[in-house]
Simulated scan of single mutants.
Amino acid sequence: MNAAPHLRSRAEAEAARLPPLLAQADHLAGTVLLGEHGRRRSGMGDDFWQYRPVQPGDSLRMIDWRRSAKSDAQFVRQREWQVAQSIMMWIDTAPSMQFASDPTLPNKVDRARLLALALAILLIRSGERVGLTGTDLPPRRGEAQILRLAEMFLRDDLDGELPDYGTPEARAMLPHARAVFVSDFMGDFDAVAAALAKASDRGVRGVCLQILDPAEESFPYRGRAIFESMGGGLTHDTKKADDLKDRYLERLAERQAALKDLCRVTGWLYGYHTTQHSAQSALLWAHRALEKRA
């Protein structure tokens, strides 16, 4: 059986989603008041930063004579050097991220894509280089990179089935870069720990943003229920779903505590977002958290 027509139809469907995703992400990024993201240092550059008094060792060419003429002291005109860093992103697109408990809510992967692309827009437009973990899309600057990122975010693995839960990708991490991992982090915890440890060994610091559906946060189920993973790999049938609530919430709290501790020991920051809340609040948190990792 020739799978090419099926793959082509899926690819065309994903391509049709590209303009709306870009528009939504650009609008979301526009709601965030963007400050100077790059670290400001004196050096070679085109933008004025500040004047400072002449110091021993400064050459006469460095003196700004116009500014110095206004006072009895001599001043040097310092220019701004924005250190553009590389930010590596990993967005979980495994089947578990397709879950939405209500048709009025976005599924987790759509919210993850929106937040990641909006964050990339903010970073790139402030002079940073943004790319994807692994080897598919290295960090680059410029508006063209925003389009490349959007295309990659929407490109699910068309060549085969994905496992139920995603595993963070930590290949090709640039030393001392920053990183953003967006996932529900409901899969193998050891895989998450290994990825963060590998990144930390290379001096990479970043943020883990956990995205959950409100039903995953509150477990509202009662009576007879059949729980099935989005990929169909796991199934559980129960006659008293409400009896599972306390154990489920306890396990969820344990997972979140473990993620927080893992981020703490590896120098990362942990954030938590549910899809019924504002995407803007999550974007603001991620943007500020990255600045703390600079």
Rank of each mutant, 00 (worst) to 15 (best):
L114A: 00
Q85V: 10
P138N: 09
H176N: 14
G231T: 14
R202G: 01
Q98C: 05
A15S: 03
N107V: 13
Y51E: 07
Q24Y: 11
G127R: 10
L105H: 05
Y221Q: 12
L115I: 13
I91V: 15
W49V: 06
L234A: 11
A241Q: 14
L259R: 11
G43V: 02
T31F: 09
V207N: 02
L60D: 12
G166T: 13
W81Q: 13
Q78P: 01
L252M: 08
S281R: 12
F153T: 03
Y51T: 13
G233E: 15
C208I: 14
E128F: 09
R141S: 12
K240V: 08
V265Q: 14
L22A: 06
G187R: 05
D156W: 13
E151N: 12
D47A: 05
S71Q: 06
D246M: 15
A172G: 07
F227A: 05
V182C: 04
L284E: 15
G231N: 04
Q256D: 09
E250T: 09
R79E: 04
D159H: 15
L132P: 03
Q82P: 01
D157P: 00
V109E: 10
F181G: 05
H236A: 02
M230H: 08
L262Y: 03
G223D: 13
L114H: 00
I226W: 01
R40P: 06
K260N: 05
K292W: 10
L18C: 14
L244A: 13
L284V: 08
V207S: 04
E151F: 03
A100C: 08
V130G: 00
P106G: 00
W285H: 09
A13E: 11
R222F: 02
R40E: 15
G232T: 09
W81H: 11
P163W: 12
G206A: 06
A100V: 07
L117I: 00
S101M: 10
M89L: 14
A112M: 09
G203H: 06
P168V: 08
F99P: 06
L117G: 00
Q256F: 00
D164I: 13
G134W: 02
A241N: 15
P175Q: 02
L123A: 00
L269F: 04
E228D: 05
A286G: 06
E254S: 07
R141C: 02
G203F: 04
S101F: 03
V180L: 13
P138F: 07
G134L: 01
E151R: 15
R79G: 00
R66W: 07
L284R: 11
L244Y: 10
P139C: 01
S68R: 10
L158A: 10
T238D: 01
I87P: 00
L212P: 03
R171M: 05
L114F: 00
Q145Y: 02
L284K: 12
K260M: 10
D46A: 13
C208S: 10
R66K: 15
G166P: 09
G38I: 08
L249T: 06
L105E: 03
P20K: 01
V204N: 07
